[in-house]
Design a protein around this nucleic acid. Sequence first.
DNA 1: TGCTTATATAAGTCTGTGCTGATACTTTCC
DNA 2: GGAAAGTATCAGCACAGACTTATATAAGCA
Lengths: 122, 122
Amino acid sequence: MHAFDVLGDPVRRRILELLADGEQAAGSVAAVIQREFGISQPAVSQHLRSLREHGFAQVRPDGARRLYAVRTDPLQDVDAWLERFRGFWTPHLDALGTELARGRRARRLRASDRRPDNRSST
Amino acid sequence: MHAFDVLGDPVRRRILELLADGEQAAGSVAAVIQREFGISQPAVSQHLRSLREHGFAQVRPDGARRLYAVRTDPLQDVDAWLERFRGFWTPHLDALGTELARGRRARRLRASDRRPDNRSST
DNA sequence: TGCTTATATAAGTCTGTGCTGATACTTTCC
DNA sequence: GGAAAGTATCAGCACAGACTTATATAAGCA
């Protein structure tokens, strides 16, 4: 399963949003998800496993609980994939800071692609 | 189907990569995809439709052909969703520009206290 | 030790989606 | 007009993956 496939599921995206606020016990996550999506505890557990197995989350035992935290490696992959398209919607430098930040990254990643000159309008 | 679901398919991602190089006729796209993935022309056409219907691509007739071009609106949505996680892998200020660009949102997101009223709009 | 809480796994069902083969436009060219 | 090229649509099948219920494992506590 590709990173994008993992993110394709709304439940998993929501779990990541929850984890983005900080480490959470599996039970706390499950409580929120069950309330919001109406699915069972095992269902949530299975999503957590999926996130774990694909590198989106890491676990740490705390007594009988499991504390989950977000891992961003696959998210960075996704971000990198998007990079090639970013030039389409931010060709203009509307602020010094933004452009400085974008410049390095864009140059680094866009060095490898072979586009003639064609550009689509938004 | 959510934008992330559309990107979950490797064939569709590849098509978008091809379109990122500029407008392409459906047939040219199909030729590449059929060679790389070993699927039929209708299959490619169906993926193109999916991309169209979800706003990832636009078409323009050129005689009997259909020229496809990338549309980035949904990609920007994906990019925006990733935004909240970016602080995790670029917390350090290694350059003025980076910090200028990131300062505001990093502060906003990494405030580290999880607000109980947390709500996401995907 | 035995009950409870916290979480994971197992087995089975069901739906969504991607594929194929057949076919239906539509445009171009003779 | 008719054939060919380019592309889209349709119907049906197959399979992945998300869900459920039942159960297993592990820790906390009386």
